[in-house]
Simulated assay, not measured.
Amino acid sequence: MYKIANVQLWVHDQDEALSFYTQKVGMEVRADVTAPELGNFRWLTVSPPGQPDVSIVLMAIPGPPMLDPATAEQVKDLMGKGVAGAVFLTTDDCQATYRELSDRGVEFVEKPEVRPYGIDASFRDPSGNHIRLVQLNESGM
């Protein structure tokens, strides 16, 4: 048997992403490790309070040898359009969480709306990643 441990979002600036996800969204740092032997590669993860077994990796867009410059630019372009990554967060009260995050400075691109599966809202992080906030109804689609 296996479980999901991490999911990854590309970010333009790890410090900016860390500030956004901890100060505005209210997540906790799970790991922040720099490996000098790997060219100062930084492993940075966050997750919601009370959910330490699954983390979001806030991954800087790498250069060579992992990505050539043209591919790195394509990733940046897709991020700017909000299609390079998405995270779905669930909440028991979408309206209350929307107000709380808005009060912390999160700018929503979609306010809470009733959908067939529940109440849904969305915002984007500073790198353009799309985050959905969902209060599921009984159907739990």
Rank of each mutant, 00 (worst) to 15 (best):
Q23K: 15
K24R: 15
G26A: 11
M27R: 02
E28D: 11
E28R: 11
V29Q: 00
V29S: 01
R30C: 01
A31N: 14
A31P: 00
D32F: 05
D32P: 00
D32S: 00
V33S: 03
L38A: 13
L38Q: 12
G39S: 10
N40S: 12
N40L: 00
F41C: 07
F41H: 13
R42L: 04
R42Y: 07
R42C: 10
W43Y: 15
W43R: 05
L44Q: 00
L44R: 02
T45N: 04
T45G: 09
T45V: 08
V46Q: 05
V46E: 05
V46L: 03
P48C: 06
P48H: 00
P49R: 13
P49M: 04
G50V: 06
G50D: 03
G50I: 06
G50L: 03
P52L: 03
D53M: 06
V54C: 06
S55L: 01
S55E: 11
I56P: 01
I56Q: 04
L58D: 05
M59H: 12
M59Y: 11
M59R: 14
A60N: 13
I61T: 10
I61W: 04
I61F: 01
P62V: 09
P62W: 05
G63T: 12
G63R: 10
G63Q: 07
P64H: 02
P65S: 11
M66Q: 14
L67W: 10
L67P: 00
D68I: 05
T71L: 13
A72F: 04
E73P: 02
K76T: 11
D77I: 01
L78F: 08
G80H: 07
G80E: 09
G80F: 07
V83I: 15
A84M: 15
A84E: 11
A86H: 14
A86T: 12
V87A: 09
V87M: 11
F88I: 14
T90V: 10
T90G: 08
T90F: 11
D92K: 13
D93R: 08
C94G: 07
C94V: 04
Q95T: 14
Q95C: 05
Y98I: 07
R99Y: 06
E100R: 15
E100G: 02
L101M: 13
L101V: 02
L101F: 07
D103R: 13
R104F: 09
R104P: 01
R104I: 06
G105W: 08
V106F: 08
V106T: 05
E107I: 13
F108A: 04
V109A: 12
K111H: 04
K111R: 13
P112D: 10
E113W: 03
V114H: 06
R115M: 15
R115C: 09
P116Q: 09
Y117D: 03
Y117F: 15
G118N: 07
I119F: 01
S122N: 12
D125M: 07
D125A: 08
D125F: 08
P126R: 07
P126Y: 09
P126L: 05
S127H: 10
N129T: 07
N129G: 00
H130E: 12
I131P: 03
I131E: 03
I131M: 02
V134T: 13
Q135K: 08
Q135R: 03
L136Y: 15
